[in-house]
Amino acid sequence: MKRAELWIGLVLVAGVVALALLSFVWTPFNPTGVGSAPRLAPPGWPHVLGTDHMGIDTFSRILVGARSALYVGIIAVGIAALVGVPLGILAAWLPRWGAEGMMRAVDVAYAFPALLLAILLAGVFGASTETAMLAIGIATIPAFIRVTRAGALSVLASDYVLAARASGTPVPVIAVRHVLPNIAHLVGVQASVSFAMAILAEAALSYLGLGTPPTVPSWGRMLGDAQTYLFSHPGQAVWPGLAIAGAVLGFNLVGDGLRDFLDPKLQEVS
């Protein structure tokens, strides 16, 4: 049953990746330029998903939009993991008062809305894909710190770490040799869940005009554009909406599936 979840998630994720890869080599029409095509055309031929209010082929924009979604997800999760994992291990190693102080700071950061941070950064640096990625990445750091610290604490309490210390193994070596490999699965699960949230956040920011600029196709911006025509042409919102839902669902299912798959309670204990 849980296996099925993981597989559905993997298929959806693979689909998004395939769309993004395909967009590099082929799109049926120019995804950015205004053509001579009719505006707001319903799905049909040659525009299989119709055209938007500028007469641009929707399917082509969906393809290229997958690229933006993955790009933002990878960079944002990358920032969060690269900063959050070392800080999480540090928080596990610190003496109690130091760790307490750090985790309270993490709590405060956790409570700070990502959207507000994005608006702040967009105000300072101007709205761009990079600003959106940075904002989403920074906002995701606390989640990685928490997950890493929880995992690292249990690894650091194990006898194999005590044995390593009894031989005088330096702390950084213990972190790399013992802690990292034994929390990799936790970080992996967190990464796929955060990836889904990053795609959703990018869509939200682009919808608000704080993310990807209008010239670059993005699912969130497509949704924002479609809103204007929601009553006259409700079909416009369907395709980017489906794409976002599919990608987010996919990454969430992969995260959930991995968590169950890697759950030590389900592993063979001999």
């Binding site: 194990s158 006898d159 194999y160 005590l162 044995a163 009894a166 031989s167 005088g168 040799r177 013992h178 490999p181 034994n182 204990v269």
Partner: peptide, 19 residues
């Protein structure tokens, strides 16, 4: 460190499973 070494109770938790 070179002179004093440990053997712990439970070899399941005293050996890093990923090494």
């Amino acid at each position: 460190r070179a002179s004093v070494q440990f053997v712990f109770q439970d070899p399941r938790s005293s050996l890093n499973p990923r090494m």
